[in-house]
């Protein structure tokens, strides 16, 4: 079985030669690589999907407070706001869910890196919000939901193969930016988009994240990472809205990935996760770094 693909074009020709639809191919490929059955692969996917659900429920049920004080239970606030400007339940849940998962991660909870820990709320947040807000008669079953996670992961594979998913290498465009593109593809799949439209939606979302710096305050996965999960969820929703309205990307997905790689390579080191630039060196950012600097005087030296 052909297991390697580097571009959407590669992937299309592999699907043709294997004579499989996208979701079916991705499961068969995974089973082949891991030496497992398709049922085992699906069971593992379901197990992981449920872990994302547990994380988002945890983030919404109690305020998440981090060790540094930078994360302060905002998802709970966002899920039941006193005032709102966009009141559509899918939108409001997508941003609250994405934030909830990211806060659970920031506070040492159990999550799934997707594609990284700092960006782990974007795909589950958008996909679960969509599923939770379908009107009766349009429910999404487990198989279709699983396929959306597979399609999102496939976009991650394409970015990993030709660029990077590490903020330290490519900046935040490679983490939250990639997750936004993955979420757009997953949502497009849930909306019934065809193969081309799925990757076009990913291209639309990714284009709007190019150049994002990775400049975390005090080097922690909190500011701006946590709230950026909510923003990139909205980005993915916008990308799919454009796609469904027939507004397509001028630049194809594969070329956007090429651009992401080139931009990542030209980003200065201090905007690639070393906490020496951007927001990290603002007066407020620096004050947090001082506050949590290790080891603090009261730090115990082990037991």
């Amino acid at each position: 079985m052909k297991t390697r693909f580097h571009t959407v074009q590669d992937l299309a020709s592999v699907l043709e030669s294997e004579n499989l639809p996208l979701g079916g191919y991705l499961v068969a490929r995974e089973a082949f690589i891991q030496g497992k059955t398709a049922d085992e692969v699906n069971a593992e996917l379901d197990r992981r999907i449920q872990i994302t659900r547990a994380a988002l429920d945890r983030g919404l049920s109690a305020p998440q407070l981090s060790f540094s004080g930078l994360t302060r239970g905002n998802a709970v606030r966002l899920a039941a706001p006193e005032k709102a400007i966009v009141t559509d339940p899918f939108y409001t849940r997508a941003i609250a869910y994405a934030l909830a998962v990211a806060e659970v991660n920031a506070c040492g909870g159990r999550v799934i890196s997707f594609p990284t820990a700092g960006s782990c709320g974007i795909v589950p947040g958008t996909l679960w919000a969509f599923r939770d807000t379908r009107p009766s008669g349009e429910e999404i079953d487990d198989a279709r939901f699983r396929e959306a996670f597979l399609v999102a992961s496939c976009v991650g594979i394409l970015i990993a193969e030709r660029a990077t998913l590490a903020g330290a290498e490519g900046g935040c465009q490679a983490e939250c930016g990639a997750a936004g593109a993955m979420a757009a593809a997953g949502l497009a799949s849930l909306c019934g988009c065809a193969f081309g439209a799925i990757f076009d939606a990913a291209a639309l979302s990714l284009k709007n994240s190019l150049g994002l710096a990775c400049d975390p305050v005090a080097g922690l996965v909190e500011v701006p990472c946590v709230k950026r999960n909510a923003f990139l969820a909205a980005n993915a929703l916008t990308a799919v809205s454009l796609e469904l309205a027939g507004v397509t990307s001028v630049i194809p997905f594969d070329e956007v990935v090429t651009a992401l790689k080139a931009i990542g390579d030209s980003l200065p080191a201090n905007l690639r996760e070393n906490a020496q630039g951007g927001l990290a060196v603002t007066p407020t950012g620096l004050s947090y770094r001082e506050k949590i600097r290790d080891p603090r005087p009261e730090a115990p030296a082990g037991v």
Partner: peptide
């Protein structure tokens, strides 16, 4: 990509 399952905050 959809993994690892981990305890946050940083992979």
């Amino acid at each position: 990509i959809f993994g690892p399952i981990m305890i946050g905050p940083s992979s």
